[in-house]
Simulated assay, not measured.
Amino acid sequence: MSRKTVVLLNTPEGRELVMASCEANGFGFAEFEELVKAQVSHAGDPNRYHMYAAFDDILDRIKAEKN
Rank of each mutant, 00 (worst) to 15 (best):
L17R: 13
L35M: 11
Q39C: 14
F55S: 06
M51V: 02
A43G: 02
A30N: 11
T11C: 08
S21G: 07
E33M: 01
F29S: 11
G26Q: 01
A53D: 15
A24K: 11
Y49C: 10
I58M: 06
F55V: 07
P12R: 10
F29R: 12
A53N: 15
Y52T: 08
N25R: 14
E31F: 00
E31R: 09
G14F: 09
P46N: 07
A43R: 11
N10V: 01
A38G: 06
V40K: 06
A20R: 04
N25A: 11
L8F: 03
L17P: 01
F29Q: 06
G28Y: 00
V40A: 10
Y52F: 13
D57K: 12
N10Q: 14
I58Y: 05
E31D: 12
F32I: 04
E33T: 10
E33L: 10
E34A: 15
D56Q: 14
G26R: 01
F55R: 10
R48A: 12
R15W: 02
L17I: 05
E16C: 03
R15I: 11
Q39T: 13
G44Q: 08
V7D: 13
F27G: 11
A54M: 04
V18E: 01
F32A: 09
A38R: 06
Q39E: 13
Q39F: 11
L35F: 03
V36F: 01
V36N: 02
H50V: 04
E23Y: 00
T11G: 07
M19E: 15
V40D: 11
Q39V: 09
A54N: 05
P12C: 07
M19I: 02
T5Y: 00
E13A: 15
N47F: 02
F29T: 08
L17W: 05
L8A: 14
T11N: 04
E16P: 01
V36W: 01
A54I: 04
A24N: 10
P46K: 04
N47D: 15
Q39G: 07
H42T: 08
Y52P: 00
P46C: 01
F55D: 08
L17S: 13
G14C: 05
G14Y: 04
V7N: 10
D56E: 12
V36E: 08
F27H: 14
Y52W: 12
A24Q: 09
F55P: 03
E34M: 08
E23N: 09
N47G: 01
E34W: 00
E13P: 03
G28D: 04
N47I: 04
H42S: 05
L9R: 02
E34K: 10
V40F: 05
E31N: 13
F55M: 12
R48G: 05
A30I: 06
V36C: 10
A24D: 09
L59C: 07
R15S: 05
D45L: 05
F27K: 14
Q39M: 11
D57G: 09
P46Q: 08
V40Q: 11
A20Q: 06
A54S: 14
N10M: 07
C22I: 02
I58P: 06
K37S: 14
G28S: 12
D57A: 10
L8N: 03
S41E: 15
K37V: 05
S41A: 15
N25Q: 13
S21D: 08
F32H: 12
Y49H: 14
S21K: 04
T5V: 14
L35H: 02
D57W: 01
F27R: 15
E31I: 07
A43C: 02
T11P: 06
